[in-house]
């Protein structure tokens, strides 16, 4: 029972990290219709930057916030390159983000090398219902809850948040009322970068990362995000938590190497289900 609880909580924590990453994907896709394949890179950059800043003597908190800001800047840069030119299609921008993800590999290897790195998080563990759980797991869960609440407030209660939603809902009408849709897309990319960065700084103490960890992160983040059709953060959060727990259970009771297979299988199943549902809806509408 204590093993189960331990896997469950650590799985929830990792799932929260995936959820943050997925929420960045969703934010960018909602506003720009671009599937940002560079999303995992933001987490890697922030995780590695936080480690470097902590090594340089910056205190905890400040180092992580600075790393998240760097990821936000990386998001802005990716957005500028991928969507800054007027008239760029979402499909073209998707390819650009994929390419930028590979370019980032070279930059990351130059700065941090190719060995996995980690940095100390909230050290120690606590005994909880007989299970020993890392304090970092509770930190990840708590921060994710706060971030999702803040995101909800931003999109549902603030004027700029409503304007971002308006761009997602109807870009033509948004332009007609004077909203700069391209600029809002860049805001979404910067926000997506910060969300990915938050995932990176929180997960790195639990899962050492290297330049190519973005593949694992984007696979899981994308699997979670597709659950909400890449547009709804709520289902993405639910999907990410299911994914995190499923992977922790597979790793705990069976074999860690099959974790990614779980994510890929889940993503595939959801995409097949969604496409068959969409086809059924289209047929219904056509009647």
């Amino acid at each position: 029972m204590s093993d189960f609880l331990q896997y469950l909580i650590s799985g929830l924590a990792v799932g929260c990290g995936f959820a943050l990453l997925a929420s960045g994907l969703v934010t960018i896709h909602r506003v720009t219709r671009v599937v940002n394949f560079a999303q995992g890179m933001f987490a890697v950059v922030a995780g590695l930057t936080a480690g470097s800043l902590l090594s340089a003597g910056l205190p905890h908190g400040l180092a992580e916030v600075a790393a998240v800001a760097v990821a936000g800047a990386a998001g802005l840069l990716v957005g500028l390159i991928a969507t800054g030119r007027r008239g760029t299609s979402a499909q073209s921008a998707l390819i650009v983000t994929l390419g930028l993800g590979f370019v980032a590999y070279a930059v990351e290897i130059m700065i941090w090398g190719d060995n996995p790195r980690s940095h100390p998080g909230l050290g120690g563990s606590v005994q909880f219902a007989g299970a020993f759980v890392q304090k970092q797991s509770f930190l990840v869960i708590g921060v994710t809850a706060v971030v999702f609440a803040a995101l909800w407030l931003f999109f549902n209660r603030s004027y700029p948040g409503k304007a971002l939603s308006a761009c997602a809902s109807n870009p033509y009408a948004a332009r007609a009322v004077g909203i700069d849709v391209t600029r809002m897309g860049l805001v979404a990319f910067a926000l997506g970068g910060m969300l990915g960065g938050t995932a990176g700084v929180l997960l790195t103490p639990m899962l050492p990362i290297s330049y190519n960890s973005d593949v694992l992160l984007i696979t899981n983040g994308f699997a979670a995000a597709v659950l909400g059709g890449l547009n709804r953060p709520g289902p993405a959060l639910a999907g990410a938590l299911v994914l995190g727990v499923a992977e922790a259970m597979v790793a705990g009771y069976y074999e860690a190497a099959y974790q990614t297979v779980v994510a890929l299988a889940l993503m595939l199943a959801i995409m097949i289900w969604q496409s068959s549902r969409r086809t059924a809806l289209q047929e219904e509408t056509a009647r």
Partner: peptide, 13 residues
Amino acid sequence: ALVPEGRQMFGDL
């Protein structure tokens, strides 16, 4: 200001 063709609502808002 524009009243666009087809109304063009922000339908979710």
